[in-house]
Design a protein around this nucleic acid. Structure first.
Lengths: 221, 221
DNA sequence: AGACTTATCTACCACTCGATACAAAAGTTG
DNA sequence: CAACTTTTGTATCGAGTGGTAGATAAGTCT
């Protein structure tokens, strides 16, 4: 078996650079010229390694998720539902204003709406955002069983609320809000969480509701 | 003085169409071909009327704000701070899932990150989002003077929280969430608001709490 | 009517987009 | 070394980008 010429660039390093370009300019706004320059490679190398621009994005998203997995494990390991929420919100406040990265969240900045030929990119990003919401929801279901979340609390609603606030913080950070601003939003949001998981006893949530449609097909223009 | 040939298309109607294209595809994703087709005019007419693609966006944003001004007046006219918050959040839940428009919010979908040559678009949109936050803040300052908001409440923080949730709801709606999902987020968020503006007297939040430690390992690239 | 002003249309500009053909280069394996 | 396989750089592809030149059409004014 013959091996052929070895790759002359580090795939993960190149993906980190590509990730930053997508993060800062969005999928449509990130041109191949930008990407290849940042990654330090030429188009044929890019296409040989990742197949297409969309393939490159997916690889970058995988790496993004991988880099954050430890973080998320820490969040979900919080001893109580409230701790999980607090860890989640503050980690978002920090990470979305980390000077080592572009401000905001790649899964939000990357592209909520794209042009012709990129219609599925928003779905791809939405699916990855939904993953975090799912993890939170399952953790809250567990918390309910553990008894540190009120019996009539709605894990799905709480997870969706936190996920929504996180997206909002991404938007806020992308427009230049500083870390303290995001911390403050986190604090107010946490009070909401606390209220909802403790005080709902009087007014029960309707729990036969479906667990949130994540991605629905959209009509083409 | 001579008047010249009159314009053969309705500017506002054309702007409505352009608005929808920007809304659905974002600034970068909206091509001139799409825009002119939707507006029913040819490029020279577009450029004569709006100057450039960016000028067209700004005009569309103006119209967007104009269309929402009545709505926002109603929100701000709420009798108490809590009513204002409730009106705000539920109007967002409705408008962001209005089938007459693309899902989400133009000011969010329009472009959080853009490509080379469009760097100022995100600023433009952020400035318009900030306007809503300002209106809410000023309303809450008034509410404080009126006494329907606790003396130690923070109007700026509350306004920012609401604005952030609204952006998050825009992201959520853009990925296909239905109206009930947004209503639920609104409800949870409102409970946060209520807690923050009412309960500060009863069970004060520890404002000296350390801003949430990030202990998790984050491998910096 | 005829002069004048402005809008509209056809056709096209220079440029950038994502993506590739092709040949030289750089390794591994016999 | 020679055969083989894969990557790399150069140079470029056709399509689409935002934007415009120039002629013509459609009005108003005197």
């Amino acid at each position: 078996m013959v091996m052929g010429r070895p790759r002359s660039f580090d795939t993960d390093k190149a993906l980190d650079e590509a990730m930053e370009v997508f993060w800062r300019h969005g999928y449509d706004g990130a041109s191949l010229a930008m990407l290849t320059k940042a990654m330090g490679i030429k188009p044929p190398s890019l296409y040989a390694a990742f197949g297409s621009k969309e393939g490159l994005l997916k690889a970058a998203l995988d790496r993004y998720a991988q880099k954050r997995s430890a973080h998320m494990r820490y969040v979900l390991a919080g001893p109580t539902a409230r701790d999980v929420a607090e860890r989640f919100l503050s980690s978002i406040a920090e990470s979305h204003t980390d000077p080592a990265n572009p401000p905001g969240c790649l899964l939000v900045q990357g592209g909520l709406a794209c042009g012709a030929g990129s219609e599925n990119i928003p779905f791809e990003l939405a699916a990855r955002r939904a993953q975090t919401e799912t993890e939170l929801r399952e953790r809250f279901v567990q918390a309910k069983q553990d008894g540190d979340l009120a019996a009539d609390a709605d894990p799905a609603a709480l997870a969706r609320f936190l996920s929504t606030v996180a997206s909002g913080m991404g938007v806020l950070a992308s427009s230049g809000a500083d870390r303290d601003a995001l911390r403050e939003v986190a604090r107010v949001s946490l009070s909401a969480f606390t209220t909802c998981h403790a005080s709902v006893s009087g007014r029960p949530y309707d729990e036969r509701r479906a667990p949130a449609p994540i991605v629905s097909p959209r009509e083409s223009s």
